[in-house]
Lab assay of single mutants.
Amino acid sequence: KKKREHFRQLLDETSAITLTSTWKEVKKIIKEDPRCIKFSSSDRKKQREFEEYIRD
């Protein structure tokens, strides 16, 4: 659960993310961040979390 919170925090702090951002764009920006790396090695899982984040 904590990894998820850190991942969401990373998304919060990434000012380039807007409601129209695509995962492909965002992934390029955040892929080097340790919170992104630690969250999951599964790209699909990160994408799902990102899409949920955008909906919230």
Rank of each mutant, 00 (worst) to 15 (best):
K1R: 07
K1L: 00
K1E: 11
K2I: 06
K2Y: 08
K2Q: 13
K3M: 02
K3T: 02
K3G: 09
K3V: 08
K3D: 12
R4G: 09
H6G: 12
H6T: 11
H6P: 02
H6R: 10
H6A: 15
H6K: 12
F7G: 05
F7E: 07
F7D: 07
F7L: 03
R8A: 07
R8C: 03
R8P: 00
Q9V: 01
L10A: 02
L10C: 04
L10F: 04
L11K: 01
L11I: 00
L11H: 03
L11T: 03
D12M: 07
D12G: 05
D12F: 02
D12Q: 08
D12A: 09
E13L: 07
E13S: 00
E13Q: 04
E13K: 03
T14D: 02
T14I: 13
T14E: 03
T14W: 00
T14L: 08
S15N: 08
S15T: 13
A16M: 15
A16Q: 09
I17S: 01
I17R: 00
I17A: 03
T18N: 10
T18C: 08
T18M: 04
T18K: 01
L19G: 11
L19A: 14
L19S: 12
L19K: 07
L19M: 12
T20F: 09
T20N: 13
S21Y: 03
S21V: 00
S21A: 06
S21F: 01
S21T: 13
T22Y: 00
T22A: 07
T22W: 09
T22F: 01
T22D: 12
W23L: 00
W23N: 10
W23H: 15
K24I: 12
K24F: 08
K24P: 12
K24A: 14
K24Y: 12
E25I: 00
E25R: 00
E25T: 02
E25M: 02
E25C: 06
E25W: 06
V26M: 12
V26R: 01
V26L: 00
K27H: 06
K27M: 02
K27V: 05
K27R: 12
K28A: 13
K28M: 09
K28H: 11
K28L: 13
I29T: 09
I29F: 07
I29Q: 09
I29V: 12
I29M: 13
I29Y: 14
I29A: 07
I30R: 00
I30W: 06
I30Y: 00
K31D: 12
K31F: 09
E32I: 02
E32A: 09
E32W: 08
E32Q: 05
D33C: 05
D33R: 00
D33W: 13
P34H: 03
P34D: 15
P34G: 04
R35S: 02
R35V: 02
R35N: 11
R35M: 05
C36E: 07
C36Y: 15
C36S: 07
I37M: 12
I37T: 09
I37H: 11
I37D: 11
K38L: 11
F39Y: 10
S40H: 09
S40M: 01
S40R: 02
S40E: 08
S40V: 03
S40F: 03
S41M: 11
S41G: 09
S42A: 13
S42V: 14
S42G: 07
S42F: 06
D43K: 04
D43A: 01
R44I: 12
R44Y: 13
R44L: 11
R44T: 14
K45E: 15
K45R: 13
K46F: 01
K46G: 05
K46C: 15
K46N: 02
K46Q: 14
K46W: 06
K46T: 05
Q47T: 02
Q47N: 11
Q47A: 10
Q47I: 00
Q47K: 15
Q47R: 11
R48K: 14
R48D: 14
R48S: 13
R48E: 15
E49Q: 03
E49R: 00
E49G: 03
E49N: 03
F50I: 01
F50V: 06
F50G: 10
F50E: 10
F50R: 02
E51W: 01
E52G: 13
E52Y: 13
E52F: 06
E52R: 14
Y53W: 15
Y53P: 10
Y53R: 00
Y53M: 03
Y53N: 09
Y53T: 05
I54M: 13
I54A: 13
I54R: 13
I54V: 14
R55L: 09
R55D: 09
R55T: 08
R55P: 06
D56N: 10
